[in-house]
Design a protein around this nucleic acid. Sequence first.
RNA 1: GCCGGUGUGGCGGAAUGGUAGACGCAUGCGACUCAAAAUCGCACGCAGCAAUGCAUGUCAGUUCGAGUCUGACCACCGGCACCA
Length: 866
Amino acid sequence: MTTILQQNAYTPQSIEAKWQATWQAAKLHAIDTANPEPSGETFYCLSMFPYPSGRLHMGHVRNYTLGDVVSRIKRMQGYTVLQPMGWDSFGLPAENAAIQRNIAPEAWTLENIAYMRGQLQRLGFAYDWSREVLTCQDDYYRWTQWLFLYLYQRGLAYKKEAPVNWCPIDQTVLANEQVIDGKCWRDGALVEKKRLSQWFFKTTAYADQLLDNLETLSGWPERVKTMQARWIDRSLGTEVKFDIADSDFAIDVYTTRADTLMGVTYLALAPEHPLVAHVTRPEHLAAVESYQQEAKNKSELDRTAEGREKTGVPLGSYAKHPISGKLIPIWVADYVLADYGTGAVMAVAAHDERDFEFAKKYNLPIIEVISAPANCDSGDQSSLSNDKPGAYTDKGILINSGDFDGLDSDAAKEQITQFLTARQLGQAKVQYRLRDWLVSRQRFWGAPIPIVYCEKCGTVAVPESELPVKLPSAHDVDFQAKGKSPLASCDAFVNTVCPNCEGPATRETDTMDTFVCSSWYYLRFVDPHNTSQPFDPALIARWLPVDQYIGGIEHAILHLMYARFFMMALADGGLTGCKENQEPFKQLLTQGMVLKDGAKMSKSKGNVVDPDEILKTYGADTARFFILSDSPPQADFDWKDSGVEGCFRFLQRVWRVVSDARSLVNLSAPAPSILDDTLTGNQKDLLRMTHQTIAGISRDIEGKTSASEPDLNASFQFNTVVSKLRELVNFMSKHAIQSEPGSQENIDSSCPVYSFAVSSLLKLLAPLCPHISEELWHRLGGSGFIHEQAWPVADPAALVAEHATVVVQINGKLRDQFEVATDTPKEALEATARLLPKIAGLLEKQTIVKTIVVPNKLVNFVVKPI
RNA sequence: GCCGGUGUGGCGGAAUGGUAGACGCAUGCGACUCAAAAUCGCACGCAGCAAUGCAUGUCAGUUCGAGUCUGACCACCGGCACCA
């Protein structure tokens, strides 16, 4: 039995648990993706699923609150909303726990998931838990393996030996995208280069599509698109072949400046270039080899350090210029990167800063072939001086270039490329910075790569019927195996029979990068229990792309590009329902970080806020309300304990304002009309205020659009939603009294206007604070769940105020103001303004040049002295 | 260096080209209370007793009117960086 006292106090903990259980029992958030409501449109709202690290942090709370509010609003607006949740549950920390604490990775992972799932439930998120997926379970990773084979069969997965990034701490290779400033993205260890045979996904096959499609993603933040574009970095240039004198070899170089071809004075090869060994003159061999060794010993970071002095040694051999036939010395220099272009460059010292620096240092000739256009006075016009401070790198007019003299750079690029192509000395070439995605990992806790090596048949794909290739038990592997996958230590796993010839064979022992698992989870959520295929393409056609995706900016390149690659590759095989369905995420919101008192939360600083503590003290509604309040979602959010207090106070006020009047409020009463003349002035004011709040909040959640330049990035302005809810509650608590009749000043709580205000408030608050609004809704006798109610719609007639404050300006400066009835004619406004004593005084001895009148807003007198 | 973003009180932040600082936090004063907490009320950009003046990173421009539009610059944050 609850006592009167308890009924009157706001005790979030008991309310929240009760409603969470009730909603779950009523399957309020479960949907059938195969049969969405016939009437409603679908809306797929997805937050990036978490890695089960142990417990939620405030970044999760912010991410998932944003997604939950969007989902709940869309549902009230009539959409069939899919909001699933799952776990990105393969990964290294589980393995480290196994090593350090002797817990099996699976046990550690499942324990964390159980705890974190409980936290998500206590926060009241409206997930359809029947769709939960764990990427580490074989009913999921069997399809990750299936998709690997799908890519393999389409030539998009291949194995090759290549210099790869090796992290000495994680004891595994890394993708290019996982190396930041030469260091491992996870632990900051200096990455080493190793030559290994590894599996790659051919992301470069989609380089153009990944780049070009960015333009269609109008719902993505500009900075994410820019980051991806620069990562892919397409450049259009020319490959030029240089024959080597007295040799059968030729060196291909890549250049974007074919117009400078006649200015080439040497060639430079990367130390790793395979031809170095073949074209070095015997007398130079010792010096070249020692230079190569030196380069090898330097770390990636050292080699690319900013402002480093360029070095190199000559090979003693010469190349023939493809047009002039002149002999050009060949050098090896470590400023040339082995893995961009052809690993060799034609050096044009006069027009490239790096080549210029190198030529100066080693006294190589500098030939100017581009002069600044005549109408451009920036460049140094005096020709061939030896003491130029630097290279002229802009476009210009060709000189010293024989038949090409006088052309401008753009025309020259084209004509020189044509000239070379006709003689088979070169060709136009597109070059990307993007590399193929290295997906092999020498780790245990990941999806095994479903490949078998047979002595007779070679590399053989595991047949679909034999999937999943299951991970062995953690007891049977040695996690400490250095430099190779722990799976290689498990004979029972390694030794198998060839699916082709049934002869002895061994399994691939590497597992897949966990980013492979997370590249397709948004597809599985639509059809999570399918046992015959990863997902039904017909369902994908209906639900994809994800309407709203929400997550951290740290995935701007990694996850978001891999997922786009997957979707494109699947679209080409018809697995996404139709070929056009090739982008996974229509709208993307990248939320800012959660800070504490202006600083990044970190364990070492001891300023981490634990969501559990907040839940215990204030409840989920307060936590949700606060994290939505102070900053727009894209900006960083500063967690302040006093701010949480303020939000808790606010919800207590809502509780009081609503429940004080609960016997008088009638939620089923029809909404009063603003035209009803029996309403008092104050009642009309509250009615207008309520409609204005509905209109304002509805606008804030649709994203900003200005008439002149629609901002297509829908931004959810939940911080201003919070402000508007506070204003409405302020207004209500100021004007409401409890059934004290006869007062004209205040609003009787029993009047229909008050009931309307209360029901609107609860509906507007429901997506943000689902528990308190549900509780109050029921206490006031509302029918059904509040989350099933229709989103309120503002009455345009009630948005017009009765009075307007008109501002009077003189020469644009504010001088006075007055109140008038709305829509008072211009002439009357001007006349009234002139007669204001203050204005009249100021207008003396002035000539009015012009008067601007904006109805309901202002009167501006433009004056000058007589 | 290149690319992107952001600059508004003590703080987080509001402002369809039309009253800059909504809403909140912090602070101060007052009411209630034996007292405290809670709650409620008032004040709160800067200078000034006031009238008033000055204020949205800086400098120009457009406009009757600019935080908002245009141009140049500065600062900070983020991404990439010897990419030929």
